[in-house]
Design a binder for these strands. Structure first.
Lengths: 139, 139
DNA sequence: ATCCTACATTGGACAGTGTCTAAGTCAAGA
DNA sequence: TCTTGACTTAGACACTGTCCAATGTAGGAT
């Protein structure tokens, strides 16, 4: 993700220690953390980083299209660094963890014209829900 | 929706004025209100109804399968009274209004077995996003 | 019709998530 | 090295939702 930092710098981003750490956290594992989880991880490397900065930085990464915001459960949003590959999500209804999944076909084409009601439809998200193997085992 | 109340009473629900009003609000327009909007509407008819009761009642209606909980934006959840007809949602990215839409085919079958990672997949929601005619005109 | 009691409601405190602001700090160009 | 405007900080705040103890009441029992 070091090229991410380069790309952002090219767009006029000021490169600070805080932003670097947030980007590194997102790059690290391919898990979908909540903002506060990102903050916790970031604090391990840069203890004085503030919650507001993490929220700001995540918001910027989202509007720059580098990260996708996923809100599956009405609780905390999660951040998905895998923004450049088209994919959908599989969510555990019990523990909330998210996996990226890839579908057969294009879900956009499943919505017939008369069902579009004059909207300019530009995006579709598909979310599968179920119980993950871990939670099944723990039950 | 008066048969809703009957159905619920058959399942041992105690029929109170508060529950009746919440059910009527949901039945009224076919809009997808947030919990606090339901509370506001309900207060017009029953001023002393409390927020906790509205949240409780909505939660019960959801677990009884009479109403669907929709969280599209990570802000307030919205409640969809149209639970008995399989459908998906079309959301305006600008003003947030929601329309029910009906799809070709079953989106569950679009997720190949190897992409299920041992989950017991039981549910799928598809959300289309775009700009509604109103917002397009206003732009 | 009245009584009982388990269930429902109330209001207010609390918790989680996210936003805002004023003051201080610093990256990076001159 | 200096300057400056963008960035960060801490903490207050707002919104959504949950919880609890005290109070009220629907509906079966009598």
């Amino acid at each position: 993700m070091s090229d991410l930092l380069e790309r952002l710098r090219g767009r006029g981003w000021r490169l600070t220690a805080q932003r670097r750490v947030v980007a590194e956290v997102l790059d690290g594992d391919h898990v979908h953390y909540t903002a506060d989880e990102v903050h916790a991880k970031a604090s391990e490397r840069l203890p004085e980083i503030s919650r507001a900065t993490v929220y700001n930085t995540l918001g910027e990464l989202v509007s720059l299209g580098e990260v996708i915001e996923v809100s599956t459960d009405g609780r905390a949003k999660r951040y998905d660094p895998n923004a450049h590959h088209d994919h959908q999500h599989l969510v555990c209804s019990r523990c909330g963890t998210i996996r990226d999944v890839h579908l057969h076909g294009d879900p956009l084409s499943a919505l017939p014209e008369p069902e579009r009601y004059g909207f300019e439809v530009s995006e579709v998200t598909v979310t599968y829900r179920g119980i993950c193997p871990n939670c099944t085992a723990a039950a």
